[in-house]
């Protein structure tokens, strides 16, 4: 069995190396990726989307379909961890999971968390909203938002964080973020354009088409941020407490 696995890996590795020979060199101006589309994005993306950050316009507009399913992948990963780990009352009786006792609360950590969490959340909102102009966007902002909740759960306990943000709401919102993304794209379909062609919103909102692209991107970034936030938090609470959601680390 081990030898078979080794053989398969060796064959695949040789294939990969042979295939990698055909890849273009780093920064080759003649490589296919730089010939057809890059110039177009560099020259036209600001005219078409009024978003100065080309990365954001490519990610959320030109390749919005791809990004939507990236968000779905994150959602699926979170749900998978939930299915594997989450223990209901019925299943809990079967599994014994001894955890060390953690006596007392740490006032230093709690005070620092109290000071830091609002700053983190404010900064996360800035990262989400400022993705059009600087590095940032839904994924990064969502991760910062999620880690602020995780910090709360770490320095107090999971119960306290769950009291602020119920598990049902977490799961509802993690699906809601993806649905918000899809809904923005679907609305374009109903307004007579292609899926995720944000220009369709222009007439409805009474703005020019590039601005509609910009606003559409902001909408989907918010959807991404909500999903990433909820999945990060859900992953933490399930992993840290072994699926019981009682006390955690």
């Amino acid at each position: 069995m081990k030898k078979t696995a080794l053989l398969i890996i060796a064959v695949l590795g040789i294939l990969l190396l042979r295939a990698a020979e055909d890849l273009p060199f780093w920064g080759d101006p003649q490589s296919p990726a730089s010939v057809h589309l890059s110039d177009y994005y560099l020259e036209e993306s600001y005219e078409e989307t009024s978003v100065p950050n080309i990365v954001t316009s490519v990610l959320a507009d030109y390749r919005g379909y791809d990004t939507m399913f990236e968000t779905v992948v994150i959602f699926c990963a979170g749900i998978t961890v939930l299915i594997v780990l989450r223990r209901t009352h019925r299943r809990r009786a079967k599994v014994i999971s001894p955890r060390p006792e953690r006596p007392g609360a740490d006032i230093i950590l709690q005070t620092a968390a109290r000071l830091l969490v609002p700053m983190m959340q404010l900064f996360a909102l800035y990262v989400v909203a400022h993705g059009h102009h600087s590095p940032g966007g839904g994924f990064q902002g969502g991760v910062i938002l999620g880690s602020s909740l995780i910090l709360l759960a770490l320095s107090y306990d999971i119960q306290m964080a769950l009291h602020r943000f119920k598990e049902k709401l977490v799961l509802l919102f993690s699906a809601g973020g993806v649905l918000l993304y899809a809904a923005i794209g679907l609305a374009c379909l109903f307004l007579g354009r292609n899926f995720l062609a944000y220009g369709a919103w222009a007439a409805l909102l009474g703005i020019s088409e590039p601005e509609a692209h910009s606003h559409g991107m902001l909408g989907v970034e918010i959807g991404v941020a909500i999903t990433v936030l909820c999945i990060m938090f859900s992953l933490y609470i399930d992993l840290a407490s072994g699926g019981d959601l009682d006390e955690g680390l």
Partner: peptide, 20 residues
Amino acid sequence: VVVFIASPTATHAIMDAGYE
């Protein structure tokens, strides 16, 4: 300011975990 709050707190947490 953020470093002033976060860094000593993280050190404290690590040391507390080590003590425990």
